[in-house]
Design a protein around this nucleic acid. Structure first.
Length: 507
RNA sequence: GGUCGGGUGGCCGAGUGGCUAGGCAGUGGUCUGCAAAACCUCGUACAGCGGUUCGAAUCCGCUUCCGACCUCCA
């Protein structure tokens, strides 16, 4: 049905044919959030992007083990040598909470947001604090292999040694001589042999809240270490896909590769996938206030839904936002603007309405396949082929939009069913459902409620109102007919008068 | 300063050597009591300058602007 899967590999900087290590099964690791504050909207884009990738791999029939971690320790602000603080410890002090309360609070918020965006849960969601033993073991094996050294209770990765063996900087395109020249003067550099060396175990300062015993000191693991340790534990020394945001390429992912090489002389992932940034009004989101406008160029996911933010004119539903994200490729920057969201909202509704019409079509007449039949089948084939070409959701989506006029044309009678095989209509129905719900992970929030028969109740009411209005129209009582229509419009319920009667939909 | 990625029609956004992206907005029409929706129709864009080529938005060079990373950051 679909062509060979191709992915753009950041490691080789080219599109490659995807071959899993074990046929039919895929191991995928995606760097999850550091749970020290509310989840960033840009973060949501990354996880939505990988959700679509995950869903498509499942659609292709792969058995996928999707591991996405929760960083709940070790992510420092500032440099480790200059008395930097762990983000979670810092927040805990600020909010006068236990570090684990901070973690739980923001992890809950993160999970809620992922559910709102309708992302599938990962197969395993390991936490750094739950894998201290594995991390200590990894530090030890890196030391044993001569790729790390201990100094005053902290352990540093020896990037110079790795660079001599020719691999440090491969992913990010950096070379160590440049790092040496460019790294700005760091204070208290004495513990490190080289500025580009990084801590894999950090001796805890007395006031540091989170710490564990280790052969080197009472301390805590370096941030990059958790991903190496946990990906190895759950996916093995060598697995298929490693993903994350673009900004994690250096130093985080580069250092992950270094650690895996140092501990087992192996390359963790065969394919590295990176998502690009979400901009707002053409710029990076920033909480600082613009002195001219008095507003900040940032928005929280919650504000996006309620419209409670000066950068947007109204609220947009989570599915509209998800649809908006699908319209661009995961590896491109995406510019969030009010106009773009508003356009996405209309397009999303058009797609959903189109699908509703499609699912209600019942083919009539002959079933001799004609040009239209071929056209429809070609578009379906194209959509899947494009999705297999580095998960090109925007292209596949465009194909669906090319099919929508055909669907509406069939319903309205502009296009004839005798041009299309009955099996093609069935294939079209399946394709739309597969793409919209299974692969793109959208939900139809254009209908009321969802559960508890709420829709049925509303539909019953609407049918009654439509009947009353129909009587008024037959009596040419346009005033009453228009009043009903306008009143419903104000309630975001739209009436559509067609040849076969009147239909309604929720805006 | 270094590394990397970009600048596509009014807006968002695909596209990498010749073939309609798509959505929104806009144009003209069909339908309709009117409207909305839907359908049909139109729009000929690729930062600038030079080069390669029969042919470039797509390749190369220069200029310019923007973004990411190099320090925590999706």
């Amino acid at each position: 049905m679909s062509a060979q899967l191709k992915v753009y590999n950041s490691l080789t900087r080219q599109k490659e044919i995807f071959k899993p290590i074990n046929e039919g099964a895929i191991g995928m690791y995606v760097c999850g959030p550091t749970v020290y504050s509310d989840v960033h909207l840009g973060n949501c884009r990354t996880f939505v992007s990988f959700d679509v990738i995950y869903r498509y791999l499942l659609h292709l029939g792969y058995k996928v083990r999707y591991v996405r971690n929760i960083t709940d320790v070790g992510h420092l602000e500032g440099d480790a040598d200059t008395g930097a603080e762990d983000k979670i410890s810092k927040k805990a002090k600020l909010e006068q909470l236990e570090p684990m309360e901070v973690v739980q609070k923001y992890m809950n918020g993160f999970h809620d947001m992922m559910a709102v965006f309708n992302t599938l849960k990962p197969s395993i969601e390991p936490r750094a604090t739950g894998h201290i033993v594995e991390q200590i073991e990894m530090v030890q094996s890196i030391i044993d292999n001569g790729f790390a050294y201990e100094k005053n209770g902290s352990v540093y990765f020896d990037t110079v040694k790795l660079a001599k063996e020719g691999d440090y900087g491969k992913l990010s395109g950096r070379v160590i001589e440049e790092l040496l020249v460019e790294t700005r003067d760091l204070k208290n550099q004495d513990e490190k042999r080289h500025p580009s060396d990084f801590a894999i175990w950090i001796k805890a300062a007395p006031e540091h809240l989170m710490h564990w015993n280790s052969p080197w000191s009472v301390g805590f693991p370096g941030w990059h270490l958790e991903c190496s340790a946990m990906s190895t534990k759950y996916l093995g020394n060598n697995f298929d896909i490693h993903g994350g945001g673009n900004d994690l390429k250096f130093p985080h992912h580069e250092n992950e590769i270094a650690q895996n090489y140092g501990s087992c002389n192996c390359q963790p992932a065969n394919y590295w996938l990176h998502t690009n940034m979400l901009l707002m009004n053409g710029k990076k989101m920033s909480k600082s206030i613009d002195p001219e406008t008095g507003i900040s160029n940032s928005i929280a996911p919650g504000e996006l839904f309620t419209g409670d933010n000066p950068n947007i004119s109204k609220g947009y539903s989570p599915m509209v936002v998800r649809f908006f994200m699908l319209q661009s490729h995961y590896s491109s920057t995406l510019d969030l603007t009010d106009a773009a969201l508003s356009a996405a909202e209309k397009a999303y509704r058009r797609l959903m309405e189109g699908n509703k019409v499609l699912q209600e079509l019942s083919p009539t007449g002959k079933e001799s396949a004609g040009d239209l039949d071929k056209e429809i089948n070609d578009l379906i084939d194209l959509a899947f082929a494009e999705m297999s070409d580095d998960f090109n959701a925007p292209k596949a989506l465009a194909r669906l939009f090319e099919l929508v006029p055909k669907i509406n044309g069939l319903k309205a009678g502009h296009l004839a069913f005798d041009q299309i095989a009955v099996s093609t209509i069935e294939r079209l129905k399946t394709t739309f459902n597969t793409f919209i719900f299974d692969i793109f992970g959208l939900k139809d929030d254009t209908i009321a409620g969802g559960g508890d028969g709420e829709y049925e109740t509303l539909d019953g009411l609407m049918q009654m109102v439509i009947k009353i209005r129909q009587n008024a129209r037959q009596n040419k009582d346009w005033g009453t007919a228009d009043t009903i229509r306008d009143t419903l419009k104000a309630l975001k319920l739209q009436l559509k008068d067609g040849k076969e009667g009147t239909e309604w939909s929720k805006e």
